[in-house]
Nucleic acid binder design. Structure first.
Lengths: 187, 187
DNA sequence: CGCTATATACCTACCATTAGGTAGTCGCAG
DNA sequence: CTGCGACTACCTAATGGTAGGTATATAGCG
């Protein structure tokens, strides 16, 4: 039971954070969402800092696994990149939520240093994975015009997160699609 | 005098919002920053919604003017795009602040519909300007490989905002530079 | 000119609500 | 009969916002 409640809390918190930002949801909101009393949340997550750290840990793990799955299911670089774009597109939830990482960066000042470090780690992981994709592309020629894999990787991560913002700004996935259209066309 | 205080409040609010997000600053913070009593702020901005609307109005006007200045000082497309990149880079303030627009989108749910509309208007303005730059590039060949000006514009805006996030995430402007390196190389 | 009226730009003193967090209690499964 | 996983009942600080007062400046007018 403890695990179920904990997971439910993380789910609700992630949903809320991605929709409203770190400062945009409270323990009271989570309590109502999960069907538990506000004070009981402190049993699972003593402080909001603990909660957000757990949130980042899980997000990191899930995304890492998702990247591994993409690798397993796609041999060529182009397929991998297309799959990542699709992953980010799905994360939008019709323009109602954004990447946890993006949301946390905006509220950086409210975060514990612990969480800040986890954000850095997450970005490093994604950049490393993307760099490998572009290195592969330089060989298999699956993506057009790849010259500098690491710069491509950083640009792609920025583009995807920026496209999230664009879509969220107008609650319209089409904004995401237009922003990534050229990248997609290179695959 | 009224104008001075009002401007000081907008300055403090913009700085705070760009550093900590919409939900990350309070009237109390502004009061201390400006040297006025908290309640007096309501004289200038009855509600926080009014404040944020004024903030977006000013931001929109300032950026529009900045784009016009860029146009006046640069004839070729490449120069204009380089200047915009420099503008966004400067807005980072060494990785401590982000674009107002990005920050407001994250806290979208806390915003009044009024402000949401202003965000859309701001993005439309920037996209239109960028589209013109890329249309010009298609003629003067100042930027490499421009095929679809509007998609280039949307991708560029997303990239710049994403690069802001990258830099803010680690409080390091170098992250911005790496993310925009390939775009810069095309100029 | 002097006298009133109004508006400006602040102030002090509150308000209700919500924030994250704490202390201590209790039912119940092992 | 112990300890998990909840609960009730609080707490303090902070939130955005309101009510009403006040010093100063300006405008209208006889």
């Amino acid at each position: 039971m403890t695990q179920e409640t904990r997971t439910a809390l993380l789910d609700a918190a992630e949903q809320a954070a991605r929709a409203r930002g770190f400062d945009g949801f409270s323990y009271a909101d989570l309590a109502e969402a999960v069907g538990i009393r506000k004070a009981s949340i402190h049993y699972h997550f003593p402080s909001k800092a603990d909660l957000s750290a757990a949130l980042m840990d899980r997000y990191h793990a899930v995304m890492q696994q998702a990247c591994a799955d993409i690798d397993a299911q796609n041999d060529v670089s182009a397929g991998r990149l297309r799959a990542l774009i699709a992953l980010y597109r799905a994360a939008l939830n019709e323009g109602t939520t954004m990447c946890l990482c993006v949301v946390f960066v905006t509220g950086r000042e409210s975060l514990s240093p612990d969480v800040t470090a986890k954000i850095t780690a997450f970005r490093a992981m994604m950049t490393a994975w993307l760099t490998k994709v572009f290195e592969r592309a330089a060989k298999d020629r699956g993506i057009i015009g790849v010259a500098h894999p690491q710069h491509e990787a950083r640009a792609t991560l920025a583009l995807l997160e920026g496209a999230h913002i664009a879509a969220r700004a107008e609650e319209d996935v089409a904004q995401f699609d237009e922003a990534v259209a050229l990248l997609q066309a290179r695959c």
